[in-house]
Simulated assay, not measured.
Amino acid sequence: MSGRVLVTGGTGYVGGWAIVALLERGYDVRATVRSSGKEALVRAAVASEVDPGDRLSFAHADLLQDEGWDTAMDGIDYVLHMASPLGDESSRDADALIVPARDGTLRVLRAASRAGVKRVVMTSAANAASPTSYTAEGVTDETLWTIDSPSLPAYRRSKTIAERAAWDFMAASSGGTELTTVLPGAVLGPVLTADNVGTASIVQRMLRGTMPGAPRIGLEVVDVRDLVDLHIRAMTEPAAAGQRFLGTGPFIWMGDIAKVLGDQLGDAAAKVSTRVLPNVVVRIASILDPSLRAITISLGRRNRHSTAKAQRVLGWVPRPAEETVVDCAKSLIAHGAAS
């Protein structure tokens, strides 16, 4: 393959693996970072999997500011917009997440359009294509849009609103830039460095024994390597233009994740608790621990998403959740991040 791809959020868990996969496929990559001090960290993380040589460069740009984005887009063929503003999910101010996510996405799209980028692939979330009611169950697909409500967690609202804003912008744009969105589930899998484990922190906490039990929450686990593969397929497939693609994996309860770790890792999983926490215990704990508030409404819920479209249009098939979970744990152990 040839071409130059801009990856926003090069310091992120998914962004790092995207850089690796693009380099392995022969692309030149430019990654956005907020400061030059992050460049060496990204390069070292990527080098653990592939030699970046002179095919990895950096641009300084912040989703909260206009400056730097035109320079970042110069000479770029494709954009993987994976960056998400940092925020406190437990904060009662939802706009702290919503406004930066929406405005940052629009900054990226405006700059991409001005530069004549061929296609932007934006990372949204499966929760942007889910029933608003957490009591509803069933299988949904990309045709469903989450109806925004102040009762929803701020992160879910930010992803839905940002993706909506992206599609509204493209509908009003007269340029030739195309948009595709990818809606992942719970992203796990190997880590590139102990300093940035991203959402793999779920498995990390289990291995460290800091999770006294597993809440009855189900995850649609997608391997970070499979998710990146989906983005790249969506980036180049002509039929993917103007489409949403769910990138979820198999559904698995957190209690079953703990059991898989115990069964597959032996002594390395000695601290993993396979106890399933009663819902009432989690709800009481959330009164004292604000970080738990966002998950209480998911207790016992079994909503699932269909990836039939991604399989049909892009030929994408995710690996088993058990394989992803074990690879994630082994990677954390190998990087010294499990104790």
Rank of each mutant, 00 (worst) to 15 (best):
R205G: 12
D223Y: 03
A239I: 02
V222Y: 00
L227T: 02
R275K: 12
K271F: 09
H231F: 07
R301F: 07
R208N: 09
I217A: 12
L246A: 05
S201A: 14
V221W: 00
S273N: 12
T324Y: 00
R312G: 00
V282N: 08
R319D: 00
D195K: 15
I232P: 00
V281K: 05
I287C: 13
L314N: 02
K309Q: 07
L246P: 01
A294T: 08
L261K: 08
T199G: 08
R225A: 02
R225P: 01
T274W: 09
D289T: 13
P212N: 11
A321P: 01
G266V: 05
E237N: 13
V191T: 15
R302M: 12
V197Y: 05
F245D: 01
V224H: 01
A214N: 12
H305Y: 12
L299P: 07
L188M: 13
S273L: 10
F245R: 01
R319F: 00
A285F: 06
G315W: 04
K309W: 03
L230N: 01
T307D: 04
P212K: 08
A270Q: 14
E220S: 14
L230M: 06
L188A: 06
V197D: 01
A258C: 13
V260P: 11
A240S: 10
K259C: 07
R244P: 00
L188R: 01
G315E: 06
V203G: 04
I202L: 14
T307S: 12
A321Y: 00
P212M: 12
E220D: 11
K309A: 04
V280R: 15
A200C: 10
V260S: 14
P190A: 06
A310L: 06
D289I: 09
V313Y: 02
A294M: 14
I287L: 15
P278W: 14
D263E: 15
G262V: 09
T307G: 04
P318F: 02
V313I: 15
I202K: 06
V313A: 04
S273E: 12
A321C: 06
P320G: 09
A186I: 10
G315K: 06
M235G: 01
I287V: 11
R301S: 14
M254Q: 14
D256H: 09
L227M: 13
M211S: 15
A310T: 05
L219R: 03
G249M: 03
T296Y: 08
L314M: 02
Q264F: 08
V313C: 03
L261C: 11
R233G: 01
D289Q: 15
A310F: 05
T248Y: 01
A258Y: 03
M211V: 08
G198A: 07
I287R: 15
T248M: 06
V228E: 00
P320F: 06
A214V: 11
E322N: 04
M235R: 02
G315A: 10
R244Y: 03
T296S: 13
A268H: 14
D267E: 15
K271D: 15
V197N: 03
G300R: 13
W316T: 03
V260T: 10
A239R: 13
L192A: 05
A214D: 05
E322P: 00
T248D: 03
L246D: 04
V280M: 12
S286N: 07
E220R: 13
R244S: 04
S298I: 11
A194D: 10
A241S: 13
S201D: 08
R293W: 05
Q243C: 06
A234E: 04
A285G: 14
L314Q: 02
T307Q: 08
